[in-house]
Simulated assay, not measured.
Amino acid sequence: MKILLDHHADCNKIFNTVYSPLIAALNVVGSLNVSPLKCVKLLIKAGADVKGVGTVSPLITAVNNGLTDCYKCLLEAGADPDVRDDFGHLPIEIAAYNNRREDVEILLPVTSRTPYVRDWSVDGIIRWVKSMPSVEV
């Protein structure tokens, strides 16, 4: 990736209508024995857009894939923790649904409170998500 970026590859080139190099890095790099975090940092340094396209955001992708270090980096670079996926779920809700308490703890202070979760705490969000009849993430 560094070689491509050093030769001025477009770090924001969209392919297949919504996928950017950042989204691709978060989805496939781990299977190639390459550090997703290293790729994310290189792409951000090169000017990659951390917001994504529509509801396909790097932050949602990182949370879905359990890439805590990557989404911390994305948040530091300005990713929006209040962006929702195609099903209307926030990153913090996805983390809670996937039993990632540490991720919920990290996302809680940066996520805007929602009116439908009465107890806006780590345990409250986890309880609320688990009480939903069917959650697709």
Rank of each mutant, 00 (worst) to 15 (best):
L5C: 01
L32P: 02
L4R: 03
E136Y: 05
N65K: 04
P109Y: 01
D10A: 07
N99W: 02
S20Y: 05
V50R: 03
V50L: 10
N98Q: 15
E76M: 08
P58S: 11
V135S: 08
R118L: 13
K130P: 06
N64Q: 14
A95I: 12
V104M: 04
G30T: 00
G88A: 04
V40N: 08
D49Q: 04
V129G: 06
V56Y: 15
L74W: 02
G54L: 06
P133S: 11
C73I: 02
P109V: 02
N98A: 11
V53R: 08
I92P: 12
S134F: 09
A25H: 05
L107Y: 04
K41P: 02
A77K: 00
V110P: 09
Y116D: 15
S35C: 01
L90S: 07
R118A: 14
V122C: 12
E105V: 13
I125N: 02
L108C: 03
E136S: 13
E105L: 08
C11G: 09
L32K: 01
T68E: 14
G52A: 12
Y71S: 03
W128V: 06
K72I: 09
A77F: 00
K38M: 08
R118M: 10
S35R: 01
V28D: 11
R127D: 15
L32E: 02
R101P: 02
N12R: 00
A96W: 07
C39M: 07
D6W: 00
M132Y: 05
N64E: 15
I23N: 11
I44K: 03
I94Q: 06
N27D: 14
G88I: 03
K45D: 01
S134A: 13
G124L: 10
P115K: 14
E105D: 10
E76T: 11
A9P: 09
G47P: 10
D10Q: 07
I44P: 09
